[in-house]
Amino acid sequence: MAGVLIGSILSALSTGAGALIILFIHHSVTHRFKDILLAFSAGIMMTASTIGLIPEALKIGGFLSLFIGVLLGVFTLTILEKKIPHIELDHNQYGIQFDEKAFLIISAITLHNIPEGLSVGVSYASNTGETGNLIALAIGFQNAPEGLLVALFLINQKMGKFKAFILATLTGAIEIVTSLMGFYLTAFVQGLVPYGLSFAAGAMLFIIYKELIPESHGDGNERTSTYAFITGLLAMVLIIETF
C-alpha cells in the first residue's frame, strides 16, 4: 500500500515539477523544443508499455488476457477522444479566450491523465514490485513535460505564472485517486491484474501514437522529434537496466 501511494504521488507531482519551470523563464519556448519534449515522453512511455506492462501481463495471464485488455484500453481511449473536447496545445495558431474554452481544455487534459494513474495502480497490484516502480517512473518522466506545456498554454491565455503553475499541477493530481482505484480493484480481484496491465498498455500505446507522436510532428520537426523519441526510449531502457 505504501509503495503505490508514494509512487502515485511522485508520478503525479512530476506534472508540477515540469510546470515549475515557467516561474523561472522569461521568454517563450519554441515549437521545436515542445516537439522534442513530446517525442521524448513518447519514447519513455513506449518503453514502459513494451518492456514493463506487456511482458508482465503475458507472464501472469497469457495472450488472451493481453489481447482483451489492450483492446479495452484502446476502445476506452477512443471513446474519451470522441467525447472530450480536444485542442492541440502546441500547434494552435489562434488565441483562445480563457473564459470560453480553456476550462474545457484543462478538463480534457485532466481526464486524459486517468489511464496513466490506473497504469501506476495496476502495476503495483501485480506480484512484481519492480513493475510498479518502473511504470510510476515512466509516467513521472512523461508528466513533467506535459505539466510544462499545460502551464505554457495557460500563460499564453494571459494567466499569471503562479496561477498557471498551480492549475497545471492540479491536472496531474487525479492520477493519485485513479492509481489507488486501480490498485484496490486489481489487488482484491487477482484475476483482473493481467487485464488491468494490458488495459494500461493499450491506453498508453493509444496516447503515444494518437497524441504524442502526431503533435510532435506538427511544425516540420519530424527528424528531430524522431531522434528525441529514440533517445527517450533508450534512456528509459538504461534506467531500467541500471536500477
Rank of each mutant, 00 (worst) to 15 (best):
T224A: 08
R223P: 00
E215T: 09
G220K: 00
M204V: 07
G232W: 09
T171D: 01
G218I: 05
E222L: 07
F199E: 09
L197N: 12
A201M: 07
L234T: 13
G220Q: 01
P214Y: 12
T231K: 03
S198P: 04
E215M: 13
L212Y: 02
E211T: 11
M236R: 14
T186S: 14
F206T: 04
I176G: 02
L185T: 13
E215I: 09
R223L: 11
G182K: 06
G232H: 12
Y209G: 08
A235F: 15
E222P: 01
T226L: 09
F206E: 00
A228N: 08
M181G: 14
H217P: 04
N221C: 07
P214C: 10
I176R: 00
S216Y: 08
I207G: 06
G191Y: 13
Q190F: 09
L233K: 05
P214K: 09
T231M: 09
F188A: 09
I207C: 03
V177K: 00
T224W: 08
E175Y: 07
E211A: 07
L234E: 14
I208Y: 11
L233S: 08
G182F: 12
Y184A: 09
I208E: 13
L233Q: 02
G232M: 09
F229M: 11
S179W: 03
L170K: 05
A201Y: 05
F188N: 15
I176Y: 01
F183H: 13
D219R: 00
V177G: 00
V237Q: 07
V237W: 04
A200I: 06
A187P: 11
S225R: 07
L180M: 09
S179T: 05
G220P: 01
V193L: 14
G218C: 07
Q190P: 12
L170N: 08
Q190Y: 13
